[in-house]
Simulated assay, not measured.
Amino acid sequence: MPALAEILAFADELKAIRHDLHAHPEIGFQEVRTSGVVAEKLASYGVEVHRGLGKTGVVGVLEGRGGPGRRIGLRADMDALPIVETTNLPYRSQNPGVFHGCGHDGHTTMLLGAARYLAEKRDFKGTAIFVFQPAEEGLGGARAMIADGLFERFPVDEIYGLHNDPYIEAGQISVFPGPAMAAADFFDITITGAGSHAAMPHLSSDPIVAAAALVQALQSIVSRNADPFEALVLSITQVHAGSAYNVIPEEATLTGTIRAFRPEVMEIARRRMKEICDGVAAAHAVEIGLDLRSVFDVLINHEAETEAMAEAAREIVGDEGLITQPRPMMGSEDFADMLQKAPGCYARVGHSGDLPLHNPGFILDDAILPVGASLLARIVERRLAA
């Protein structure tokens, strides 16, 4: 894959860093070892290091040779997923039940690669801010860093990030303005009934029957309440109830997520969920509690910064490798919170592989590492040209 020659020269080191991070994955807000590796590498490059933002976040500060000027932020996420890895790679996870199945080990490595390149050259006027964020996977890492004063302590004029993408061709970069990734709410539903012997169901208020009815009824929100031209997803992802063959339990729980690109559509889903929960509770003589909370905002790429990112990408992959037509995804990203604090852009970098993100067998293509590092480095040099 195309990349800057200086970064290609240390591609093997980038691969070694990623394999080490992959073998030692850590869940959000527990990235103690990972943040230690990041801090040690940054310091070895001559980058000023700050630790502890958002619990385990790391920030690096690098001044260019051209003197004071504007400040450009680059962000990568560091956390892994609670998934059992099935790749059988020689550098597979050594932490049972924890797996870098989304490529955050690659994102961290790419930003370290960009930091090394920029520290060696410093061919820019102004300051590069390297933000290594914890807890992106639905735990609010971006909001935690912001609450800890990220942008007060390290103000930026613009901020950029990227994600690996097995859904586009290797060597392609996708970047476009406007809504790029959906907002997401997570929900927990608790259904409380009355338990009984399974042979005497008439003495119960069965929460499992209510749960089954609720799962079906909630699907009608997308099919019968939302405008079919509006993107909306509602997924039940967990169902828990009972512990014996012959006992109707007291309680059942459901969890899941709703996603959309517009606040009005999210509000329709939230309102109807509450109404349906109340209706099913009345129909089945149970109590239903709904805990619904906003976790991700819509990720919106800013116009001018997106064009700047596209131009940087064009230098790396050429016109033939640049995708600029809008292709929003229903997945969510808490980089959206940082884009509400400073203008910027979030790009996607294609790589080989036929398994989706969050699959226990997902394998990140190491060839993408110098490509992503080159894109991040080039956007700094372009935006802070001396």
Rank of each mutant, 00 (worst) to 15 (best):
Q133G: 06
L118H: 01
M181E: 05
F124D: 03
E136K: 10
L139M: 15
A114V: 11
E169K: 15
D123A: 14
G113P: 05
F124Q: 07
V131Y: 02
R122T: 11
I146G: 01
L162P: 05
T127R: 09
A128T: 11
K121Q: 15
A135W: 03
L112K: 04
G113Y: 05
G126L: 08
S174W: 07
I168L: 08
P166E: 09
K125C: 14
G138F: 06
F151N: 13
I173H: 00
E158W: 10
M110K: 10
V156T: 05
P134W: 10
V156F: 07
A142P: 13
L118V: 11
N164R: 00
A184Y: 00
I173R: 02
R143G: 14
L112T: 01
G149L: 12
D165V: 03
G140K: 07
A147S: 15
I146W: 00
M181R: 03
P134G: 02
E158C: 13
G149D: 12
A119V: 04
G149P: 07
F151T: 13
L150C: 10
P177R: 03
Q172V: 02
Y167S: 15
F130M: 14
D157C: 09
A183L: 11
R153K: 15
I146S: 02
D148K: 08
E136P: 09
Q133I: 09
F151E: 13
F151I: 14
G140C: 10
G178S: 05
A135S: 11
A128N: 06
Y160P: 03
D157V: 04
A170G: 13
P166A: 11
A180Y: 00
Q133R: 11
F130E: 09
F154N: 08
A184S: 15
D148V: 03
M145F: 11
Q172N: 14
E136H: 06
D165I: 06
F124N: 01
V131A: 04
F132C: 10
E152H: 14
R143Q: 15
T127L: 04
A144E: 05
A182Q: 04
F151W: 13
F151D: 12
E169N: 13
V156C: 11
R116F: 00
P134L: 08
L111T: 03
L111E: 01
A180R: 03
V156P: 06
G138S: 12
G141V: 08
P177A: 14
V175W: 01
A180L: 00
F154K: 12
G171H: 05
G178F: 04
I159K: 04
F154G: 04
I173K: 02
I173P: 00
G138P: 02
L150P: 09
D165H: 02
A180S: 14
D165C: 08
P134V: 08
G178M: 02
D157Y: 06
V131I: 15
G113A: 03
A170V: 07
A147W: 13
K125I: 11
Q133Y: 09
M110D: 01
A142E: 06
P134I: 08
E158R: 15
G141E: 02
N164Y: 00
F176L: 05
P134M: 08
A184G: 01
G178W: 05
M110V: 00
G149I: 13
Q172T: 14
I173D: 02
L112S: 00
M110L: 12
P179N: 02
E120Y: 11
T108S: 10
Y167M: 14
K121S: 13
G138A: 13
F124A: 06
M145T: 02
G171R: 01
E152W: 12
